[in-house]
Write a protein that binds this DNA or RNA. Structure first.
Lengths: 349, 349
DNA sequence: GTGAAAGCGCTAACAG
DNA sequence: CTGTTAGCGCTTTCAC
């Protein structure tokens, strides 16, 4: 690993000059001619700055701390991490991810991150819910991911839940469905509330009647399957909007048992269904993909913009539909979600 | 953040003395009395060493690099990362994870990790296959996870594939199955080879006939479902050993369409089926859980033992069935997998 | 036994 | 315009 010292020696200048040049602070301070030389030897030696040594002076490590509660074990979380890492990488940062199972070790993990001098924190949840930010990080730059802080005290990146519900329902309506069920979960988190509102709004806009009987809120275990079964038999819905994978699975099972085929006999729009599943078993299944990757990506951009006090507009936009939220936006920004398989999806009525 | 300097000042000694004491090198070099005092002020100030500053002298950062190819997007990968991080955390290390989609950016990511001075690398794959270790990391300590290096040039942690196949098949046999199918994938990786061998061996040991017709190798898309369908109708197997989730889903679908219930009419043992799925829809489903967490955990232990030149026996054993592989083991170590739901699982014949 | 001093790679005042 | 100097937090000789 080449050092500035070595470059200085080989170029015949002092280390400070090298530092100035390689940090692009040579404008009118170093003769273009000599700056040129410095850059050349740096190039030749394949110089790369040692961020750790630099941090000793600047107290900026270019390391970001990613705090997640066992989020890493879901494929969704993976998307967030992936996006964060890509953004971090392009912006010249590194990410250290820590898992905090519940709250027991959270403080320790945070302390460890602080010892490594992280410049800021990403605080991610598995599903858009209210989050309690630990006291110990409140005077660092913090950005929430897929979570909301009480009183919106911290910037956060989250999906546009209302629109998820609206788009999904609209998609079913356009496919010709008349009796659309909502298979939700038994927890009143922001995600569910927003989607349900979107669902109702879409029905209303289409002049369809909202019927409480067609929405169910089920947990992850036991009686859930029979609840869905009952819904199938009592209401005979022709369209299903499912809160998530786990909820959608019940629908698949019930449909298969009744000999109903997704995309022909009934239509299903799920949120975040596993691609492999959707693409192989039910090719006509419509999926609302949560913008996990984008959320991670923009969260990091937001965080870095906070750390470096630069406007968000200076960030590179990747080829996604997501927009960088305004830095001075008072309310938490939300990200639009895209429907995949939109064409081939629903009932070919 | 308290520094040694501050401790020295408050205790009335020099920084060197503090350093000696806090690194436990004071034996016979510093008066016990004064050492005691140093430790006290350190405690009082909540001192924690700055690993980055330390690294400047020692060129040991206590940072580990985790290289994975888009592994982070699967829940399985999550387990590995989780395990690695837990181990790293207990051993006083930090992990920086990078994703390399394919090979394009691999060198860049590695270079970045090297700039941050990682002490060693974990190189993880998504499924036990042959891996090509990048030249750039070959003179660092490296441990492979769920992968095999050509010629076993690097230590690796991987599941005991043979035993996975053996146990799964045996479990089906014990449940009374006579015609056991193997639903594999169309790729000859170490994982598949080992499991298939285990499958055959288990059949043989039970005096059952191995029939090529009952094993299929399918890809992830299109014709796979009809292939399984055909197998159902032609062979009418009463037990299924599935290579993975994606393969198992085909079986669930076919069964549901025929009104067959898992655990009553047919038995299924899958590898790494999603818990939520297994536990809700098919409570009697048997799952072979890949020891992802353990693999990650032990991989880090192995790596650290290499970095610090200390024997593996000095590592803390977590409460799992996994054994720490011997440091001097010539062949790659493998980890036993455990069956979950074993009791409630298979056919109640 | 203990402290002074040097140096890891880098940045930032300040001279000149 | 450029170099000298000091110092970030820590380890490590080497004198005393």
């Amino acid at each position: 690993m080449a050092t500035m010292k070595e470059i200085a020696r080989q170029t015949g200048v002092s280390v400070s000059t090298v530092s100035l040049v390689l940090n692009n602070r040579d404008e009118g301070r170093v003769k273009p001619h000599i700056a040129q030389q410095v850059r050349q030897t740096a190039e030749r030696l394949g110089y790369a700055p040692n961020p750790l040594a630099r941090s000793l002076r600047t107290s900026r490590t270019k390391i970001l701390g990613f705090i997640s509660e066992e989020i890493a074990t879901t494929p969704f979380a993976g998307g967030i991490i992936l996006g964060s890492q890509d953004a971090a990488s392009t912006l010249g940062y590194m990410m250290i991810t820590v898992n905090t199972d519940g709250v027991s070790n959270e403080d320790d993990e945070i302390a460890a991150l602080q010892r490594y001098g992280v410049d800021g924190f990403l605080y991610a949840k598995m599903s858009n819910r209210l989050a309690q930010i630990p006291q110990s990080i409140t005077d660092y730059p913090v950005v929430l991911v897929d979570a909301t802080s009480e009183g919106h005290r911290f910037p956060s990146i989250q999906p546009d839940e209302f629109r998820i519900g609206y788009d999904a329902t609209k998609c079913l309506i356009e496919a010709g469905c008349k009796k659309i069920a909502y298979i939700g979960c038994d927890d009143d988190m922001p995600a569910q509330i927003g989607r349900l509102q979107g669902y109702r709004q879409a029905l209303e806009d289409a002049g369809l009647h909202f019927d409480e009987c067609r929405t169910i809120a089920i947990g992850g275990h036991g009686p859930a399957l029979s609840a869905v079964s009952k819904l199938f038999d009592n209401e005979r819905p022709d369209g299903f909007f499912c809160f998530n994978d786990a909820r959608a699975w019940y629908v698949y099972e019930c449909a298969a048992r009744r000999g109903l085929e997704i995309g022909r006999d009934i239509s299903v729009v799920g949120v975040d269904n596993h691609r492999v599943f959707a693409e192989t078993l039910h090719p006509r299944l419509t999926t609302v993909e949560l913008p996990h990757y984008e959320m991670g990506y923009w969260a990091v951009c937001r965080l870095v913009s906070e750390i470096e006090h630069r406007p968000p507009s200076s960030f590179i936009m990747p080829a996604t539909t997501a927009q960088m939220p305004a830095l001075d936006a008072p309310a938490p920004a939300s990200i639009h979600c895209t429907l995949i398989n939109k064409e081939s999806v629903a009932r070919q009525a």
